[in-house]
């Protein structure tokens, strides 16, 4: 028996919206640890890894490990029938071939259940090695989305160059080229700044707001890599899950684009770089 209840159903809805265009069919692995997925897109260029830890659910029961193969477009169709403030419960029998999604509104006076047929999916599971990345960039997820969107109107690929002080995004296409540089926010800017006002005396003004870039860079080695914008734009569908996005880069390795899901886990996207022929 597998049973998982999430109070904030909108999280599950958002997760599905962020991955359903990248991956068609995927196996969800339900274990005592949580509800996880690892799947590649059909061209084997990108991979999504999702983890929703059991401790993040309001109720979680998994008597034995269950693999549930689902068509993500169909799953998304079902989850769209849940309101954002609904509680969502997923249920499956150990040997069953359906998963049940149950939606409950906050007043608990409307309860819906949707059954979806499961499928047998033959997939390769890839071992992702633990890697020390040469560069880690943390920035506003909205800004990252904006940059990827803006650059994709000029070119098809983006070159990301990380130095200790900045991260630079470059593209070029038939109509011209574009460079966007985000400077690392200095430590002083990230901290609370005290502002004196005549009326209130001392007032604390927090500058770490959604305005500005709030770019944090952890660098071992400067790194420059090129990626297809089409995939990055797809990853950015996860933007509403987290205020910040974390990019991890190393020479000639796939980039990791991570969105944390508060109190629950993460959705991570891996994208293979464009390399010299």
């Amino acid at each position: 028996m597998f049973e998982a209840r999430i109070l904030q159903g909108s999280i599950l809805k958002k997760v599905l919206e962020s991955i359903k265009d990248l991956v068609t069919d995927a196996n969800f692995e339900c274990t005592a640890n949580g509800f996880a997925l690892q799947a590649m897109d059909s061209s084997h260029v990108s991979l999504v890894a999702l983890m929703l830890r059991s401790t993040g659910f309001d109720h979680y029961r998994c008597d034995r490990d269950v693999t549930m193969g689902m068509n993500l477009l169909n799953m998304s169709k079902m989850l769209k029938c849940a309101d954002n403030d609904d509680t969502i419960t997923m249920k499956a029998d150990d040997a069953g071939d359906v998963v049940t999604f149950m939606f409950e509104n906050p007043k608990a006076d409307k309860i819906s259940d949707f059954q979806m047929k499961l499928m047998d999916i033959d997939t390769e599971h890839l071992g992702i090695p633990d890697t020390e990345y040469e560069a880690t960039v943390k920035m506003s997820s909205n800004e990252f989305q904006r940059i990827c969107r803006d650059l994709s109107s000029i070119g098809d690929t983006v070159t990301i160059a990380v130095t200790k002080d900045s991260v630079k995004f470059t593209t070029s296409g038939d109509i011209g080229e574009a460079n966007i540089t985000c400077r690392r926010t200095s430590d002083g800017d990230m901290k609370e700044e005290k502002v004196k006002t005549e009326e209130d005396g001392e007032k604390v003004h927090n500058t770490k707001s959604s305005e500005g870039q709030n770019v944090d860079i952890d660098l071992q080695e400067p790194v420059t890599l090129t990626f297809a914008l089409r995939y990055l734009n797809s990853f950015c569908k996860a933007t509403s899950l987290c205020e910040n996005v974390r990019l991890q880069l190393s020479k000639e390795l796939p980039v990791v684009v991570q969105y944390l899901i508060e109190d629950m886990g993460y959705v991570r996207f891996y994208l293979a770089p464009k390399i010299e022929e």
Partner: peptide
């Protein structure tokens, strides 16, 4: 020109 690499070369199949 740069070509798109595949993930298969980076991660081990299990």
């Amino acid at each position: 020109a740069k070509k798109q690499s595949s993930l298969a070369g980076f991660f081990e199949k299990r």
